Simulated assay, not measured.
Amino acid sequence: MSTLRVTAERLTVHAHSDADALELAQVGLYRAVVAKGVYRTGDWAVYIPESAVLPEDLIEELGLTGRLSGAKRNRVRAIRLRGELSQGLVCRPEALAGVDLAEAHAAGTDFAGELGITKWVPEIPLHMSGDVVPAADLLPWIDVENVKRYPDVFEPGEPVVATEKIHGTACLFTFVAETGEEFTSSKGFAARRQGLARAEDNLYWRAVTAHGVPKAAREIAERYGAARVGVFGEVFGSGVQDLGYGESGRSERPGYAVFDVAMEVAGQRVWVDAADLHGLLESVGLPAVPRVFEGGYDADALLAAAGGTETWSGRSVHLREGLVVRPVRERHSDVLGGRAIVKVVSDDYLTRKGGTEYE
């Protein structure tokens, strides 16, 4: 998931294709449906992104009672309004009436706390949970931001690699060379430096064991002289999320594919370059997420490529979640303040019916 930030943004307003009383307010590459005439291009407003959970008073103020998502009707998610995709909310809350939004934007102010907005975190189903153990040495995963919020991470034409974003549950495995310890965790538990206790019926341990992840991590550590190796993969299949990819999450060998590898070498954490990742994984016998594109960065082309059908099964059994885009060689992004990496999510995936979103 992306990080939650509620920020002041300058708008670009577009006509709605099929509604005279509505318009589209653009923030980055996101567009949110708004009432016609409320905003003009160049105006400043507050942008509340998807996966935000709003307090009741703000919901009432914005006239959204009963119109949001979730059991409590308080969560922002993407919807289609008269055929146009609407992502997030554009508003000017009364609590910020005296705030200079242009200055707040320049300062990078996050209004989430002031407005009582929190990030939606899906509950972990029992079959995907387990007993937890301390895991201080576990290498955590990161939040990958959406290219629509941060469209300037890559320069046009910059060499990038795009891999398919598989809809499952993130599975983190860390091998510690000095002690021989092995940790497995989900993204949510790992953020709290907790691992999942080894158990035959645990989804994550079943996946890493069946696919030989511990042996592969040891081999990588020996090859590079790494103190720690983190293998980041996706566990998927029927019974994990609503998209199954022709795999079964209930079997002894759930669907599993690696999307990243990190190492601690000479006290520094390094990520394996996208250009080298698939070759490394093949050499140690680990399955990799499908590579969809390699070439010069083109935002419009990648937004289009995020749609369509999945490629893992080879049979296009359902829609594609999207893509993850990285530079061919790892680099720092001043825009993100960290790794240069973004996700591109399919519009059809966002608006599908009956979807699940477990971490």
Rank of each mutant, 00 (worst) to 15 (best):
L11F: 04
T311W: 03
V144M: 09
T41F: 13
M1W: 07
K165C: 02
L115P: 00
R40V: 12
R250A: 10
I48N: 03
E282Y: 05
G322I: 06
V13F: 08
A95K: 15
L138N: 07
A197Q: 15
H167T: 09
Q26F: 01
A301Y: 05
R10F: 02
R5C: 11
R10G: 01
W205Y: 08
G337K: 08
R73S: 15
V325Y: 11
A216C: 08
D131N: 14
V34L: 08
G246N: 04
D298C: 09
P55F: 12
G188T: 12
G295P: 05
V240R: 07
H14S: 13
S313Y: 06
T41G: 15
G249Q: 10
L4D: 10
G63V: 02
P122K: 04
I59N: 09
R10V: 14
L64S: 12
R320I: 02
L303M: 12
P49H: 09
E252M: 09
W44R: 01
T309H: 13
S2A: 14
F293R: 03
L138S: 06
V325H: 06
F183K: 02
P214W: 01
R326D: 10
D334H: 11
G113V: 13
R218F: 00
Y224W: 15
A217R: 06
V328I: 11
P290E: 01
G244Y: 06
V335N: 03
A19E: 09
G355W: 02
P49A: 08
V121Y: 09
